[in-house]
């Protein structure tokens, strides 16, 4: 898995690519933790290049969302979600916990 991140005026953008499974989820969590450690809690995640996400990846998403939403200081928004990844999010009941945008620009612009 590769991860890139960028800082925008109103949010941070994280773009993982490849597989997010039990082997790679800690790396995904670390990238998000580094952003939160800077006091940034408005995070857009571009999922367009993610081929696979397991429950280990979903755990990272839900734990990050809990931390970001605490004290109303921010939230995690998801963008460009591939069909298979979306069906995993739906199965886990995550589509009610995250705002999901069709493209990255709209997600970044939502903050």
């Amino acid at each position: 898995m590769q991860i890139t991140s960028a800082q925008y005026k109103h949010c941070d953008l994280v773009k993982p690519s490849g597989r997010i499974d039990s082997a790679t989820a800690p790396q995904f969590a670390e990238a998000l933790n580094q952003i939160m450690a800077k006091g940034q809690y408005k995070i857009a995640i571009d999922l367009s290049q993610v081929e696979f996400i397991s429950s280990a990846g979903l755990r990272v998403l839900i734990n990050t969302q809990k931390l970001c939403k605490r004290y109303n200081r921010g939230e995690v928004a998801l963008a460009s979600v591939p069909e298979n990844i979306l069906s995993a999010l739906e199965l886990a009941g995550f589509t009610t916990l995250f705002k999901i945008y069709e493209d990255v620009l709209t997600a970044v612009g939502s903050f």
Partner: peptide, 22 residues
């Protein structure tokens, strides 16, 4: 419970959903 509000969601057991449902 996949309908619980965010703060009450546990982060375990999700993998079993994939096995059972899929």
């Amino acid at each position: 419970d996949i309908t619980a509000p965010l703060e009450e969601r546990t982060d375990h057991g999700l993998g079993l959903l994939f096995i059972r449902k899929w």
